[in-house]
Simulated assay, not measured.
Amino acid sequence: MRRLKRDPMERAYLRGYQHGVHGKSQELCPFTHPTTRQAWLNGWREGRADHWDGLTGTAGIHRLNEMRAVG
């Protein structure tokens, strides 16, 4: 049975979030397509905000799982 692929925008957002929450630079964005890049940057911004708020480790993972459930 084939697995359904996730929405590319969701995947870009989640990858950006992971980079942001780990304190990595937004210059590391691997996407060039404008809408995918914007989704990655939105995730990165959200991740950076969570990083600054101290949501790292278990709290950050919990937040990421909440975002997946809502999205």
Rank of each mutant, 00 (worst) to 15 (best):
M1Q: 01
M1N: 00
R2A: 04
R2K: 03
R2E: 08
R2H: 03
R3E: 05
R3P: 00
L4H: 00
R6S: 10
R6T: 11
D7W: 07
D7P: 05
M9V: 07
M9W: 07
E10Y: 07
R11P: 03
R11C: 02
R11A: 12
A12C: 02
A12P: 01
Y13Q: 06
Y13M: 05
L14C: 02
L14G: 01
L14W: 00
G16P: 11
G16M: 08
Q18C: 09
Q18G: 09
Q18S: 14
G20M: 06
V21Y: 05
H22S: 14
G23A: 07
G23F: 11
K24P: 09
K24M: 15
K24E: 14
S25D: 05
Q26W: 07
E27I: 13
E27K: 11
L28D: 10
L28C: 01
C29R: 01
C29E: 01
C29W: 00
P30W: 04
F31S: 12
T32Y: 14
H33L: 01
H33Y: 01
P34W: 03
P34L: 06
T35S: 09
T36D: 00
T36H: 08
T36I: 15
T36Q: 14
T36Y: 04
R37G: 08
R37P: 04
R37E: 08
Q38N: 15
A39R: 02
A39G: 05
A39F: 02
L41F: 04
L41P: 00
N42V: 01
W44F: 07
W44L: 07
W44Q: 05
W44H: 13
W44G: 11
W44A: 10
W44C: 06
R45T: 15
R45Y: 15
E46N: 09
G47Y: 08
G47S: 10
R48W: 09
R48L: 10
A49L: 03
D50F: 07
D50R: 04
D50Y: 01
D50I: 02
D50M: 09
H51Y: 14
W52C: 10
D53N: 13
G54D: 07
G54T: 06
G54C: 09
L55S: 07
L55D: 11
L55V: 05
T56Y: 05
G57S: 08
G57K: 03
T58L: 14
T58F: 14
T58V: 13
T58A: 15
G60A: 03
G60Y: 05
G60Q: 06
G60L: 05
H62Y: 12
H62D: 15
H62K: 04
H62F: 13
R63Y: 08
R63I: 07
L64Q: 08
N65W: 10
N65Q: 13
N65I: 09
E66S: 12
E66V: 11
E66L: 04
E66N: 11
M67Y: 02
R68C: 04
R68D: 00
R68A: 10
R68L: 13
A69K: 03
V70R: 00
G71S: 13
G71I: 12
G71K: 02
